[in-house]
């Protein structure tokens, strides 16, 4: 049951984009087309679930026994950077098209706060190893959902007659704001009603 709770929490209640504001740069940058948004979303799911797992192992099996937990920020960011490099090489090999579409944003997953964020949050919440993995996966899934909704919206917005000053980023932010208002409906009471 706790796993379902974690999934619902990270996908809906504390959605990384709409309530925690983690990973906004790619959210605004790559959400112009649905295809690239989907690619980015899956890349984030992949990296964040593996990152959550690997950082849990490193934190609890290396940093805690050696009593050097103050090095967590440095260690986590290096592990994530290496992981992103791996994913980048994989995507380049498997689907060069997708690789071209994601362009400069793939290396930028390294500096995507969502991935480092989930690693730090999992440590802070003292999740177990499977819980960390599930949290990483569902945080990525929440990101995918948000960026998918946003890109579908923006493809339609492109055809609308928007005042000049609002074109591009401003209207994207305002639409995201309205979506975030909708997401305020998901809260802890809802979770309690759902799974008791």
């Amino acid at each position: 049951m706790t796993y379902i709770g974690i999934i619902i929490t990270f996908v809906f209640i504390t959605n990384f984009i709409f309530t925690r504001f983690l990973g906004l740069c790619p959210f605004i940058g790559v959400s112009k087309k649905v295809d690239s948004a989907v690619g980015m979303g899956f890349a984030v799911i992949f990296v964040s679930s593996i990152a959550a797992l690997v950082t849990w192992v490193i934190f609890n099996l290396i940093l805690v026994p050696l009593n050097i937990t103050y090095l967590q920020t440095i260690t986590f960011i290096l592990v994530i950077a290496a992981l992103v490099q791996l994913v980048e090489m994989m995507i380049q090999k498997i689907s060069p098209e997708l690789y071209r579409a994601l362009g400069i944003y793939l290396p930028l997953i390294t500096t995507n706060c969502a991935v480092l964020g989930i690693a730090l949050i999992a440590v802070q919440e003292e999740y177990g190893v499977i819980e960390s993995f599930v949290a990483g996966f569902s945080a990525g899934a929440g990101f995918l959902m948000a960026i998918l909704l946003m890109s579908a919206l923006r493809e339609r917005l492109d055809r609308e007659d928007i005042p000049k000053a609002f074109r591009g980023a401003p209207i994207a932010f305002i639409s995201a704001g309205l979506m975030a208002l909708g997401f305020m409906a998901f809260d802890m009471t809802l979770l309690k009603n759902l799974i008791g």
Binding site: F21, A165, A172, I174, A176, G177, L178, A180, M184
Partner: peptide, 25 residues
Amino acid sequence: GVFIAPAGALLVIGLLKAFFNQIEL
């Protein structure tokens, strides 16, 4: 209260960015 909520942050930055764009234009 909406401005303190997360949604408010996105609305405020969108409107401010549009305001600065308008000045630029």
